[in-house]
Every structure is written in C-alpha cells, then in structure tokens.
Amino acid sequence: MSDNLNQQPLITLKNIRKMYYTDQIETLALKDINLEINKGEFISIMGPSGCGKSTLLNMLGLLDRPSTGTIEFEGKTLDKLSDKALAPIRNEKLGFVFQTFHLIPDLRVVDNVALPLLYRPMSNKERRERALNALKIVGLDARVNHFPTQLSGGQQQRVAIARAIVGEPPVILADEPTGNLDSHMGNEIMSILFDLNENRGTTIVMVTHDREQADQTQRTVRVFDGQLVH
C-alpha cells in the first residue's frame, strides 16, 4: 500500500474544532485536528473513552459538521455543501460499521444489506443481487431471509459489514466494530476488514480500544482530550 501514500489524500481534516452546547455549558469535543487519510490505508483511532474518537469518526463520515475547520474529500471542500448534497457522498463514498450494528429489526438480512442501495437509482432485482453478493463475501449467504434477532452478535456484525460494502464505497468507517463481540467473533470481523483492505483496496478507518487490533493496522492515530497526540 506504500505507493498510495504518495497520492492526494482521500480525506483531509484541517484545523477541525467541534463544540457542543448544552444549556449554558460548552464542551470542546475536538480541538485543532489536522489529519490526512490516504487511499488504501487501514488506520486505527485509539484513545480513552470520551476523548473524541467517535466525534472524529463522525467528522470523517460527514455525519456531523465541524464548528470550525475544513473537511476535504478527494480534494473537494465539503463545508459549504448542503445536507442534500452530502447525502450522495455518504451513500457512494462511505460505508459505516457500528459497535451496536444498527440493523433494522423488522427487515430481513438481505433487505438490511440492500439499504444503502435504496437511495440509488437501481432496480429491486439489482439491489437484491448486489446484497446477496455482499452477504457471500462475509460468509452469510445462507442467512439471507433471517431477521437480525435470529442471528448471533458476530453474524449481525457481518451483516453490518455486508451493508457497508454493498455500495462498493472506497472508505469504510468502523466505530469499535468488535466492541460488542467476544474475541473469537472479534477476530472473524477483523479478518474480514483486513481482507477488504488488502484484496479490494478499501480504505478503512477504525475506532478501537484494542491495542492488539490497532497494532495490526498500518497507522494508529491517538486522540486525547479532543486532540491528536503523536
């Protein structure tokens, strides 16, 4: 992957600050963050609870707007874009994996996986075919018609990964993807993520508390009190 490091960064955060306001209390969640993420990288973000890791991931995933600073994606500045303009970028360029899976309990596995494709112009048949293919990649093609509650935690996270990759985004953002799993299932999920990175060239940014997992990634970014520490 080292040849990718010389290319233009995929995502660039410049002087990012994020303030939260509740009643009369101001909380500085991120302070002067400068970070570049290159295409094909597998980066882990580490830090103690409440240090701003998830907030940083939300900035990278365009799920929240910074109070000040600039986010660039593939060289384009996104600050001024409306929510309507950001939605297709999230849909086509980013895949999300959450600690709590965030599967919709009333939808079957295949429909959960096809969810991102719902917001693209595509036939139902093609959506289903791509969802089945994504489920095959994560080894869950035998469970397509199950509901999430009928699956184990590890299987649910694999469904979530299938949902993240079904739209073939160049970046996957994973927020403690193994946090709710035992070590065996955690290792399974990690191996899927490594496989996506190595064999498909997917850029992965993962928040984790697990030093061992972080050590396996190409780069670890440490956050403390809302700031990057080197």
Binding site: L63, K84, A87, R90, N91, H102, L115, P116, Y119, R120
Partner: peptide, 16 residues
C-alpha cells in the same frame, strides 16, 4: 430515531 440516523448515514436525504 437511531434507524432514522442510520438511514441518513447510509445516504438518505432528510426529505427522503
């Protein structure tokens, strides 16, 4: 609400 957040994260515009 979390499902709505998920849909927004996956690319659904607010109007959708």
């Amino acid at each position: 609400t979390q499902e709505i957040g998920l849909r927004r994260a996956l690319g659904a515009p607010s109007g959708n």
